[in-house]
Computed example of a mutant assay.
Amino acid sequence: MSDRLKALADAGVSIWLDDLSRERIETGNLADLVKERSVVGVTTNPTIFAGAIADGERYDEQVRRLVADGADVDKVIFELTTEDVRNACDVLAPVAERTADDGRVSIEVEPTLANDTEATIASAQALWEAVDRSNALIKIPATKEGLPAITAVIAQGISVNVTLIFGDVRYREVMDAYLAGLEQARDNGLDLGRIRSVASFFVSRVDTEVDKRLEAIGSEEALALRGKAAVANARVAYAAFEEVMASDRWKQLAEAGANPQRPLWASTGVKNPDYSDTLYVTDLVVADTVNTMPEKTMEAFADHGEVEGDQVTGRADEAQQVFAQLAKVGIDFEDVLVALEHEGVDKFKKSWIELTETVEGQMEKARS
């Protein structure tokens, strides 16, 4: 076992792998990562599935069978992805049994539905029913239209990974949506202890967008702020989480058996080669959080990552100073957040198109 990853886990950070493939499941690689790399969860997205399906022959037989049965591309995607997530849930089931909140595997609602509340709810229900595992999480984007969908499915007892969160204002709305869903679930007589949720706060993309704007400004003062916005943003978000956890509203739900919606640091692969390749792990160590990593980032941390204690708690004021400096040099951070959400939804939709085209290609091969 990697001592460095174990130290990270011992510091209270749940290590989730941001990748999944049938090959990982069937070769035992995923199980090995659980044993050797302290992995206790998995996140997926359409791009991950597109890569797995394009590169892996392990899907061919199921594709042929579905094509022979007359399935269209949406049905084939649904069947391939839910089978992988179901099987990954089974691999992670022992982790779910021995821990309070881990052993979870996420699958995303169709991204083209990001601005359609009712269709998002229907997609979440269909995925939850098809995967049929209590340790699954259904990923719903934190768009304005996604917020009421989050409340609705939580109220039905469906566990949710809220994704595509960039700023603390929207994050507070996400937490409110979760608590509202729990309150409805409680009033409906559901067991709150069976409902889990994480809130996926995107990290590296913030620096990518802010750094681009800083470089366009070009002053010495602006360039000195590169690589600082993302971690500061996450630290402010964590302070918002602490505030909600201290509220009477949350305490009443906790007394009724509810589980906290843990912050999850997403998009933690470092894009800028000038930065440490473990930046968004090392600088965001804090207990009771999740860090979902591409395998490359996980292996980098296993090789040379350092755990230097809690890097988040009590640092919101320091983080706010970063935002004040950004504003001083001309960065409109609210505009950054709007741009990131629009870009994020667009990327989600493009990734779905990529997955659809990949599966259509596999279906064509199956017919030939």
Rank of each mutant, 00 (worst) to 15 (best):
F201C: 06
F323G: 03
I107W: 07
A114R: 01
Q125P: 00
I158V: 11
R133T: 07
E242V: 12
K144N: 07
E36N: 15
D19Y: 12
G257I: 14
L80C: 10
L284K: 13
L137W: 06
T292M: 01
V160S: 05
T278H: 03
V91S: 02
E306L: 06
V338Y: 13
E220D: 15
T292S: 09
V95C: 03
N115E: 02
G305R: 08
T313Q: 04
Y238L: 08
R104T: 12
K271N: 04
S368D: 11
V131W: 02
A68G: 04
D207E: 06
H304N: 09
D69T: 12
T81R: 00
L253C: 11
I150T: 05
V359G: 05
E308Y: 10
A52N: 03
R262Y: 14
E26G: 00
L20Q: 07
R367F: 04
K271C: 02
A185W: 12
L337M: 14
S200K: 08
L326H: 04
N161F: 07
Q321S: 12
L264V: 07
V270A: 04
L179R: 01
A177Y: 11
G51W: 06
P141G: 13
Y178H: 05
R226G: 13
R65V: 04
V153T: 07
L264G: 07
R367C: 14
A68I: 00
W352K: 01
V76I: 05
A366S: 08
E173P: 00
L17G: 00
G330E: 04
A339K: 09
T143N: 04
T44S: 13
T99P: 02
E26W: 06
Y275R: 10
E318C: 11
N135T: 13
I15A: 01
R194E: 15
I331R: 00
A177G: 08
E145H: 10
D335H: 08
F49E: 00
G309D: 09
V286H: 13
E318V: 05
D74W: 13
R37H: 13
K251L: 07
R22M: 15
P294V: 12
V359I: 03
N291I: 10
D69I: 02
S134N: 11
I15W: 05
E364K: 02
E57V: 14
E299Q: 12
P141L: 13
T358R: 01
G361L: 01
K328I: 01
G51T: 01
G12H: 11
F201Y: 14
T43N: 04
V286N: 05
D335C: 00
A71F: 11
A9N: 14
A126K: 13
E255S: 15
V203T: 03
G12N: 08
H304Q: 02
D211T: 09
L355R: 01
I158T: 05
A240N: 10
C89M: 03
S276W: 10
L113P: 01
V42E: 09
P111H: 06
S123N: 14
F348M: 15
V67K: 12
A152T: 13
T99E: 10
T44Y: 07
G157T: 08
A11H: 13
A339T: 14
Q184D: 11
Q320K: 15
A177D: 06
